[in-house]
């Protein structure tokens, strides 16, 4: 018995279906993905630090009004005052935020505190 060989079907793979699939994938990833990335700023204490000396107290009134140990500070002064504290050998600064201060102000101040190498501890209860 002679079997006839089937003629090989030569058909180019359709581009249209490929594009369809890629478009679907693209749409899915465009709609499902988020671009926001978050960082975690620790708010809790820095571990057991049994210091007899109370840390300097930094009070935040607003984005441009601070008070360090009861002394009014401008934002420009804050950086070098913090650096001076670091030079004195201090490790932590207690941060107290007044009611009207914004969360952004607190984070900005914590940034500046950690910039000079000090640890900022946010005091929640008074």
């Amino acid at each position: 018995m002679r079997l006839e060989r089937l003629p090989a079907k030569r058909r180019p793979i359709g581009l249209t279906s490929l594009i369809d699939v890629i478009f679907l994938l693209l749409l899915f990833f465009m709609l499902a993905s988020t671009f926001s990335r978050y960082q975690a700023a620790p708010l809790s204490g820095t571990g057991p630090g049994a210091r007899a000396e109370p840390p300097p107290l930094l009070r935040i009134h607003s984005a441009a009004r601070f008070e360090l140990d009861g002394l009014e500070l401008s934002p420009e002064d804050l950086a070098w005052r913090l650096a001076a504290l670091k030079a004195e050998g201090r490790r932590t600064v207690a941060i107290v935020a007044e009611e009207e201060a914004k969360v952004q102000d607190i984070v900005s101040v914590m940034d500046r505190v950690s910039d000079v190498g000090l640890a900022g501890v946010l005091i929640a209860g008074e």
Binding site: F29, M30, A32, S33, T34, F35, S36, R37, Y38, Q39, A41, V103, Q104, I106, V107, S108, M110, D111, S114, D115
Partner: peptide
């Protein structure tokens, strides 16, 4: 570039930080 994680905090604008 995107991530498929659930973003619970999309309703708020988290504060920005330089650190």
């Amino acid at each position: 570039a995107g991530s498929l994680e659930k973003d619970d905090a999309r309703g708020v604008t988290a504060p920005t930080s330089l650190t």
